[in-house]
Amino acid sequence: MTSTTQAAEASSPPATSLQGKPRPGDRNFAATALGAGIFILVILAAVTAFLLIQGVPGMLADPADAPTTLGQSANFWDYVWPLAFGTIWASILALLFAVPLSIGIALFISHYAHRSLASVLGYIIDLLAAVPSVVYGLWGSTVFAKAVVPIYAWLNANLGWIPLFGGQVSVTGRTILTAAMVLAVMVLPIITAICREVFLQTPKLHEEAALALGATRWEMIRMAVLPFARPGIISGAMLGLGRALGETMAVAMVLSATGVVTIQLLTSTNPSTIPANIALKFGEAGYGLNVNVLIGTGLVLFVVTFGVNALARWIVSRRSEFSGAN
């Protein structure tokens, strides 16, 4: 007993060695991670500060001080409201097209297609995301808009009693509906990619549980895959919505905007969107408070986007105990 204790004392290092030195790798990594986290907050704060400092004077401006922007409006809010409406309206229409299509494509890739076909298809969808938005704008305004004119005429003639399809149909096809469909193509890849990843992560256990109960493939998807993927689908849709809300070039090139508030989809009088309006007006806005008015509209867009994201988070967290995260 005594000898083993002595042996242990002799061989074991002094007690203070339990207090090891801080490892430089750990410390560096912690510092880098902390720095990165703070950096993103600083950027966000800087952008917010810029929008507030530059935008608020524009929001309070007298129309006389900003003639190229506020020229025909009573005040800033009168000016921004049709733009904000157009932004949200076009984005929601785009999501209405893009989300069901994305879910369908993602399900096909994750659960229906043969593995080799699925990887090719996934790659092509990712390529869509790499197409510059100005190219979509060119295509939308020169090719796509012309192609949909007969369809619009038919919708207007046969379903014109629905307010959405009413009014005087556009002969150029450059309407808010066309812009929304171009936006839909643009946001499709991001929503599809996220849905595909989430669908593939459905636990095999739950898929097998459904199949063993005698579910067909579609029933299995409805029972195990879609409920599991619901938060992911919403996140993907919100990322897509974020891109649609902020998209500038494609909308500016496709849409023939007149700055009205209307839900008619097929006419040549369409609401513009905030980003497209900023891009189109910026060149001639170089004096007075015009630039500040445009930055003010940017602040409104910022608030709208923030609100949309908060809403999405709330939807996702509402049934978190049923989420499958446990």
Binding site: L205, E208, A209, A212, L213, G214, F228, R230, A325, N326
Partner: peptide, 17 residues
């Protein structure tokens, strides 16, 4: 499978239900 039920190695109730 509707006539022959199955119970798996790990409990797998549907988490969203």
């Amino acid at each position: 499978r509707r006539q022959i039920g199955m119970v798996f190695q790990r409990p797998n109730p549907f988490p969203t239900m």
